[in-house]
Computed example of a mutant assay.
Amino acid sequence: MKRTTKFLMGLGALAVTGLVLVSADHIDAPSSMGTTADIADFYAFEPSENSDNTVFIVDVQSNVLPELAYGNFDEDVLLEINIDLDDDLIEDKVIQAIPRNGRMYFFGPAEPSQTGLNGSILIDAPLGDVEISSATAIVETTSDGVSLFAGPRQDPFFFDFFQFNAVINPDVASAPGGFLAPDTAADTFDGANTLSVAVEIPNNLLGTPTATNALGLTVYNTWVTSNRKQ
């Protein structure tokens, strides 16, 4: 499978309460930008202070608009959450998600069969599955305490796209006041949707991290990849 990657480094079980660090640019490599393998956002965070769980959320296909039919998860695209436990920036465990016939199937967390640019489905490590939501959000919780979701969600990315273009315009007169204040800025992505995959998982299923971030907290290094069947 061909892989595209988005990184979110240094989040883990000791993250500050309520703090969500985001790696979001809505623009991927030319081979995946605007396709069903396009990664829009990746989040990893504690659901509450001193929680024993970690939540991973992957958003793809950021151009799903409400006045159009919802986009569909691509059955040829495998989403993979990569988890580095020993701070060498090589995945030690992965959580995978792939759709089939209206359901999202999850595998892992388990050691990948291969690291780097290629991936294969860990069919010997099923985690669970959930019906892909449409009008109503559906969450499945496994016997191991893992909660799973897949379906459309409103795009969380707030960005005044047109004012941004005015600011970076070489003609300084195009935006003499610079960026607009929050109460006057326009959210260009308001009403648009992404397709989201969410996993809340006990940390004891992930393993013990050894990396330390800038705050001195022990963390997981984690990133997400999309893998297209070749």
Rank of each mutant, 00 (worst) to 15 (best):
K6S: 11
N50Y: 14
A150T: 02
D41E: 11
G10M: 04
D86I: 04
R103M: 13
T36R: 10
V60G: 00
A24Q: 13
F158G: 03
S120H: 05
N50H: 12
G191I: 05
G71C: 02
A37D: 08
P209M: 06
L195Y: 07
N63W: 14
G145H: 07
A173Y: 12
I168D: 03
G34S: 08
P152Y: 05
L14G: 10
D41S: 11
V55K: 02
I98A: 09
L11I: 15
A29H: 08
A192M: 13
D59I: 00
D190Q: 12
Y105A: 13
V58S: 03
L11D: 11
D74Y: 05
M104N: 06
I168N: 04
D86M: 01
V172Y: 14
A214E: 12
F42C: 03
D38M: 01
D129R: 08
M9I: 15
I39Y: 04
Q154Y: 15
S147R: 06
N169H: 10
A15L: 07
T184S: 15
R228N: 02
E140R: 12
A44F: 07
D87R: 01
D87L: 03
T222E: 01
N165L: 15
Y105D: 11
P156N: 02
F106W: 08
A40T: 13
E111T: 14
A110G: 12
L148Y: 08
I83D: 07
G18L: 07
A40N: 11
I138L: 01
G177Y: 10
E46Y: 08
T17C: 14
L148W: 05
V64D: 14
F161A: 15
D25I: 01
T5N: 13
N72W: 07
L122P: 00
S143R: 09
V146K: 02
A211L: 03
D92T: 02
T218P: 01
T225Q: 06
D84H: 01
R153D: 05
P109E: 07
P66E: 15
A24F: 03
A13L: 14
Q96Y: 03
V55N: 04
D183M: 08
E200P: 00
S31W: 09
S147T: 11
F7P: 10
V219Q: 02
I201S: 03
I201Q: 03
G102A: 05
H26V: 07
R3E: 12
E111H: 07
Y105W: 08
I83G: 08
V146D: 05
P126A: 05
E49W: 10
N203W: 10
F158L: 11
R100P: 05
V146I: 13
E75D: 10
